[in-house]
Amino acid sequence: MTAATVDLTELQRDAFTELVNIGVSKAAASLRGMIGVQVLLSVPSVEIVSQGQAARMIGEREASELVVVHQDFTGAFAGRALLIFPQENGRELVRAVAGEELSPEEVSEMEEEALTETGNVILNGCLATMANLLQRTLTMSLPEVMRGDGQRIFRPTGDVGGDALVLFLYINFSVRERDIRGYIAMLMDLPSLESLKVLIDDFVERAIGETEA
């Protein structure tokens, strides 16, 4: 099965990118409230690829080990959401969140907790906002942290089988004047992606209707 089986139209892609950008903007506001400094997040592009392609793409972009916060979600569409950083960017995020004065040892000790909390704020905020805009609800699992390369991150797990596809989103972070790059990915099976496409079409129709009203 290939990613081409669920290609988004240009309108669907634009609408989904807008949904994600609204979601990450809400998440950035929540993160700003948590750490007390300006946080900017943006999602310039959305791609649908296979798990193998996603692993290759991130392997080409990132040579270092990756740190990932992931949460499973169920509801009108289901899958696994991942917030992905190169290892050093993850540590930079911990310093931005927990404090500039931390020693390397303290950063290491706090890394898991800070990443879990940050990932929960971003993933939960983003997905909850998107679901709300699509007039649906999602249930999220507790966040977990894992480390590894692209092959490990995007391997089939649980309810998301070997035919899963990946909504792959590059995100730009700016926290405390730091440039922290990262990615959001959503592993979803074909039925869930098709359900999401229907909800996006409904969202577009409502938006057009409001514009014409």
Results as ranks from 00 to 15, higher is better:
1 M>H: 06
3 A>E: 10
5 T>S: 15
5 T>Y: 12
6 V>N: 02
7 D>F: 09
8 L>Q: 03
9 T>A: 00
10 E>L: 07
12 Q>E: 08
15 A>I: 06
17 T>F: 08
18 E>K: 04
21 N>H: 07
25 S>T: 02
26 K>F: 07
27 A>K: 04
28 A>E: 01
28 A>L: 00
29 A>H: 00
34 M>D: 11
37 V>P: 08
38 Q>H: 07
38 Q>D: 09
42 S>H: 08
48 I>M: 13
51 Q>Y: 12
53 Q>G: 10
53 Q>V: 14
53 Q>A: 11
56 R>T: 11
58 I>Y: 08
59 G>W: 12
62 E>V: 15
66 L>V: 01
71 Q>Y: 01
72 D>T: 13
72 D>Y: 14
75 G>M: 06
81 A>D: 00
83 L>P: 05
83 L>H: 03
86 P>L: 00
88 E>T: 15
90 G>F: 00
93 L>I: 04
95 R>I: 00
95 R>G: 02
99 G>S: 03
100 E>V: 10
101 E>F: 12
102 L>S: 11
105 E>G: 09
110 M>C: 03
110 M>P: 00
112 E>T: 15
113 E>D: 14
113 E>G: 06
115 L>G: 03
116 T>K: 14
118 T>G: 01
119 G>N: 04
122 I>W: 01
125 G>C: 00
125 G>L: 05
126 C>R: 00
127 L>Q: 07
132 N>Q: 10
132 N>H: 15
133 L>D: 07
136 R>V: 14
136 R>Q: 15
137 T>K: 09
138 L>A: 04
139 T>R: 12
139 T>N: 09
140 M>F: 02
140 M>H: 01
141 S>M: 05
142 L>C: 03
144 E>S: 07
145 V>D: 04
145 V>T: 03
148 G>M: 05
152 R>L: 05
153 I>G: 00
155 R>L: 04
155 R>S: 12
163 D>E: 12
165 L>T: 02
174 S>Q: 14
175 V>R: 02
177 E>V: 06
177 E>F: 06
181 R>L: 09
182 G>L: 02
182 G>N: 07
182 G>I: 01
184 I>T: 00
186 M>H: 10
194 E>F: 09
196 L>P: 03
196 L>Y: 09
197 K>N: 10
198 V>T: 14
202 D>C: 08
203 F>S: 05
205 E>A: 14
207 A>K: 14
212 E>T: 15
212 E>D: 13
